[in-house]
Design a protein around this nucleic acid. Sequence first.
DNA 1: GCCGTTTTCGGCCCGACTGTTTTCAGTCG
Length: 589
Amino acid sequence: MQNAQIAAIFDRVADLLEFQGANPFRLRAYRNAARTIGDLSEPVAAILADESRSLTDVAGIGDDLASKISTLIETGTLPLLDDLLAKIPASVLGMLRVPGLGPKKAAALYKQLQIESLDQLREACEAGRVRELKGFGKKTEETILEGIDLAAHAEERIYWAEADELVQSLLAHFAKLDCIRQIEPAGSYRRGRETVGDLDFLVDSDAPGRVMDCLAEYSETDRILARGETKMSIRLVGGLQVDLRVVPADLFGAALQYFTGSKDHNVVLRGMAKQKGLKINEWGVFRTAEGDDSYVAGAKEADVYAALELPCFPPELREARQEFQWAHEGNLPQLVEIADIRGDLHMHTTATDGKATLEEMVEAAIARRLQYIAITDHSKRVTMANGLDARRLRAQWKEIDALRDQYGGFTILKGIECDILESGGMDLPDDVLAEADWVVASVHYGQNQSESQITDRILGALENPSVSAIAHPTGRLINRRKPYAVDLEQVLAAAARFGKLMELNANPARLDLDDVACAAAKRHRVPIVISTDAHSTRGLDVMRYGILQARRAGLTKADVANTRDWQELRGLIGKRPAYPTQELAGPTM
DNA sequence: GCCGTTTTCGGCCCGACTGTTTTCAGTCG
């Protein structure tokens, strides 16, 4: 059983316990464990199998949860979950997705009106039965009725790239206000998460009323959900919620820190503050000693962290994963930046399914100040994209030869995105691949095969001496297609063994390897190559989304292969151990 | 359910806003 499955089961247990009204701290223990395990860069099964280690070494996992994890790995089931499901039908959990319905109200509906599904909830609201319950009223009933439609889409989070468009539009809208001194988007957008569930804006102004009016007047504002002295929430026409907080300058840093989160990061932070006799909230850092509640810091975000003797963490790291430990050890990584990127090693042209010609792609790459690119059109198996056979590929390489003469200082690599066939093996003959400067291998077909089949196919590709990297290594499309079943641990171990690179595909719908998998690659000392997989000249601009994902994984410039010049990068391929980091504990075999 | 250089028991982050209430519980972030 994989980490993600164990995490999902613990989350489900937490949902059911919450519904039951269980001890909130017990609940939190399950939620914490779910997140910790989901974020772990190595399989818990591996920790369990290693006699020198214990699951209880993982923060937040005690004896009880460790034994539950063992049970899950050994038997695939958890008796506690079965017991809970025997008492509470899983369908009631859908009610928790209705905005305004929490565990208490949902439980009241279930117990007093026997409501088990959203359909039954709708009927009860329409019949006016919900308003009869104690603690409910007419208004609540209306809110629930509206929320039921939203609940169906509640799981849907938009791509960071889409969120960015909305953020830029809103910033432009606010720009006409002269009473705004500072404005910052916060929340998961600022942390660079691959998807965003709502938008948070923090504003420094002495005129909160005017700022809130401005948001209310935004052309895409559908309705106002709440509006108080300092805080306002609205829903956009598309359904996305926008939260706005307006504070004066001396509180801006504290509020920005608070609103950027993550929630878990803030919980840890406040716990640390408490130990130091301090209290942190969105209004600042305060001393809590008796008879003294004086303000310590709050104007700048860095001041808030400094008050706790912590570095001002890059927002991408604020997930309560390893950042506090890194800070404690003085090892906070210097994260990779877009300016570090020198080349792009995955892109298509009109020869297959790209929209721009070879020459247009070269021009566009030069305009973006890249030093080298690899042209990697599809191989023939991808008939839908008019994939290249050996003859057409060699013809393209001739064209590249001509362009190399034309664009002297710029490096154009002869590459191919070669399919890994369903039956295993590569889509082009070895002698052809051997002539290429750069070969990315990818799985496009047979994605429904078993984990062992797909893993074997990829392992086979890694063994091929001409293959340089595995492209979009899980095949997922966020919100649209699940990753195919693949044992990434085996793949990463093999990549390290053969000195191969792994791609982080920067397309906002792909972004695989994801942040957790990138951290796993780093653990295996496998270099990551961040590539755009551009199908047009504008497609080259998605690089920054890949950078955000890499930063969330804690990757540095040294961890990302295409921050090097091409000669140096080429030296990494086929070498073992893959590349030197700080101290090598010997090659991993 | 986890955790401990104050603790093996008794803590566990903190505040804004709403609706249904007459002082607060529930929800949310």
